[in-house]
């Protein structure tokens, strides 16, 4: 889901950085000092998740864990996404530094949205089936929303990217389903073994 360097226009990059500054400022204000180490733990998982490749036919993609991040970190998710993406760009060459703001918005906004839409419902849900369905929906929505934001950025850069945007959305459908399943299992395990993570 990382947008590479040299694709987006200057205007879109600026919008990305503006969104990132706003999101990180908001996130830092909402960060609970007692949960900073937990935030670092989740940020590390997100940082490493990009190395887990999922084979889909002749192609492959990697996990994002956007929904688990959003459900665990809530409104403090943006700083965790920014730090992980910065280190992915510097250490693994994913994305880039100029496009870091745009990529943070592409992944931070869905994680934040999922926490706001599903966070409370997942916390209060009791039945395993209900938790699984809600978590699956959160995981699927987060990936498709991220692909949608990336698509809008590409389209804003150049209307000729319309074909690539369609491909981007279609290519993310299987990824969204896989993320939904992973999110469902992870959240069910957390509800049972470490419910304080979702509090």
């Amino acid at each position: 889901m990382h947008i590479s360097e040299g694709i987006l226009s200057g205007g879109v990059l600026a919008v990305g950085w503006a969104g990132t500054v706003a999101g990180v400022s908001f996130g830092l204000k909402r960060t609970n000092p007692d949960r900073i180490i937990q935030t670092a733990l989740i940020s590390s998982a997100f940082f490493l998740a990009s190395l887990v490749n999922v084979r889909i036919g002749p192609s492959s993609t990697h996990l994002t864990l956007l929904a688990p991040m959003g459900l665990i970190l809530g409104q403090a998710v943006f700083p965790a996404v920014l730090v992980a993406l910065l280190l992915q760009a510097v250490l693994f060459g994913f994305g880039g530094l100029a496009v870091l703001g745009a990529n943070t918005v592409v992944m931070g906004v869905p994680a934040l949205a999922v926490s706001m839409i599903f966070g409370r419902a997942v916390r209060v849900a009791t039945g395993r089936g209900r938790v699984a369905v809600l978590s699956f929906m959160a995981g699927t929505l987060a990936v498709m929303m991220g692909a949608g934001i990336a698509g809008i950025m590409l389209w804003m850069t150049d209307a000729d990217f319309a074909g690539a945007v369609k491909l981007l959305l279609v290519a993310h459908v299987p990824v969204a389903v896989i993320e939904g399943v992973v999110t469902a299992f992870l959240v069910m395990w957390l509800k049972k073994s470490a419910p304080e993570f979702l509090s």
Binding site: I36, I37, T39, A40, S43, S44, F47, L48, L51, V83, A84, L87, Q88, L91
Partner: peptide
């Protein structure tokens, strides 16, 4: 990968 995790925890 280990360097990245170390940096994340140091920032935290």
């Amino acid at each position: 990968g280990m360097l990245g995790i170390s940096l994340i925890f140091n920032i935290a």
